[in-house]
């Protein structure tokens, strides 16, 4: 079974445990600056969002690389950078629409998420379940369920006008 990192911003508290876990696993140092996953804060909206490589099937970075230093890992589905081949041309950083491949001045190579070879540390470190590593076919299930429940709640409201929770939910989201 292939798995994918599932990111749920509404559960993120901005604690940066994922960034430290990532840099520690990959670089042996607690250093958000070297993390392949990043947490963004949107202060005025009161929200946080973790973001990293989604491992595109037809990966722009992989296709753009002129020296074939980015390769498909069939075991995990990740697109991995081979440091020995990478020449640091940065074309992949331009090709990636999401900005999740980045150049490192200290090594002269690019870095991106490789799912830690199938056991991503960010997911293990996340204290709130905002980052999980799930069946690649099921990443949308929870969201589908939430919308299904909303529909169910809406119909319940029509049937029973006292369903206050649903009204509050609607208002909160409005």
């Amino acid at each position: 079974m292939l798995r994918a990192l599932k990111l749920e911003p509404e559960k993120c508290t901005g604690c940066m445990q994922c960034e430290m876990a990532c840099s520690y696993e990959n670089e042996g140092v607690f250093n958000p600056a070297l993390s392949r996953i990043k947490v963004f804060e949107f202060h005025e909206q009161g929200s946080f969002a973790p973001y990293t490589c989604t491992q595109c099937e037809e990966a722009w970075c992989m296709h753009a690389c002129p020296v074939e230093a980015i390769v498909f890992n069939p075991a995990t589905g990740s697109k991995d950078v081979l440091d020995d081949l990478c020449v640091g041309c940065k074309v992949c950083t331009i090709a990636c629409p999401f900005g999740t491949v980045n150049y490192r001045a200290d090594t002269g190579k690019v870095m991106k998420c490789d799912l830690c070879g199938g056991d991503p540390w960010c997911a293990k470190a996340c204290p709130t379940g905002a980052i999980t590593y799930v069946d690649i076919a099921d990443t949308g299930l929870a969201r589908m369920r939430a919308w299904a429940q909303r529909g169910e709640a809406t119909s319940a409201r029509f049937n029973a006008p006292v369903a206050k929770d649903a009204q509050n939910f609607d208002r909160a989201k409005a």
Binding site: T13, C15, G46, S47, P127
Partner: peptide
């Protein structure tokens, strides 16, 4: 929302 400080798992 609730929010964490750096490295905090309480939030």
């Amino acid at each position: 929302t609730n929010a964490a400080c750096f490295a905090c798992t309480i939030a």
